[in-house]
Design a protein around this nucleic acid. Structure first.
Lengths: 148, 148
DNA sequence: TCCCGGGAGTTGACATATCAACAAGCCTCT
DNA sequence: AGAGGCTTGTTGATATGTCAACTCCCGGGA
């Protein structure tokens, strides 16, 4: 299926990839970067990738978020968040309070953990991801990702 | 808000995003697109996303691959592939043969399934992913993803 | 008031992913 | 031949993700 069928709107020099191919490449890149970053960071701190994701997101938001907002900001399902927070709660990284909905808070231990891990995380993300992009690529990628 | 739109190459005033932020955006976009595409395709055919991933990859390779090559082309771990193929083997979608390593083959049922699902998959990927990218963006994304 | 419907969270059962240990084939060196 | 060491694949235990109920709360109508 490599032939376009109709040579509509082909621009010089660049080949517009097939949709499914591009999506496969996207998944593969995600997989590779994720694996490498996790190997370089979470592992060292006794954290899993989802742990780290939640901690970083809460930290970025100032330490507290409504559970539904946390879910939305990650693109996660509500049951996934619920299970994950339950596990993290048992380990003392986060706390939940009922109010108007449920508010999730970083505990002191959680804050200490994310503070300790963040420099290594940033270094790993640079090493395995952003350092491999030019400035223009990073900007374009950022705008594209926001749009999805 | 600087929206590049159709402007090419000009990056006046563009803000290069923070590494961790960009990575979070990447993960979120992956999550959202994945969820939507799966909801529109796999669900209908009784397939999970990993099932679909394997089937499409095998199909693209002509129907057979060494297990380690399959793993490498997806960025998957060997135990993940092994478990996944075991599950799919039980459902008759793929078969394994020992030889120089292990060769994974699409069964007739597997081939029929992927053929049946492919049009819907392509439509869903367009709808939720590539249709939201300009041609230049798709090209650049493709080159960036290959590099990772 | 009662009932209905939707949003938000939880729970338990099952599917998938990860980790550590193991097995088998295949080199090479001695 | 036989002892290491490397690559590939498997297995079982545990962690994480998904699906289908279910609860609880709230805000209309009739």
């Amino acid at each position: 299926m490599s032939t376009p069928g109709s040579g509509a709107g082909e621009s010089a020099g660049g080949v517009v990839p097939e949709p499914v191919e591009l999506w496969s490449a996207f998944k593969r890149a995600h997989e590779l970067v994720r694996t490498r970053v996790v190997a370089d960071t979470a592992e060292a701190a006794g954290l899993s990738e989802p742990d780290l994701t939640i901690l970083v997101n809460l930290d970025k938001a100032g330490g507290a978020l409504r559970q539904s907002e946390l879910a939305a900001s990650l693109g996660w399902d509500r049951t996934r968040i619920s299970h994950q927070l339950t596990r993290m709660g048992k380990r003392g990284l986060v706390a939940r309070e009922r109010g108007d909905g449920v508010t999730v808070t970083l505990t002191d231990a959680g804050r200490r953990t994310v503070t300790a891990v963040h420099p290594g995380l940033e270094a790993a993300v640079r090493r395995h991801f952003t350092d491999r992009l030019s400035a223009e690529e990073a900007e374009m990628l950022s705008s594209v990702l926001r749009r999805l």
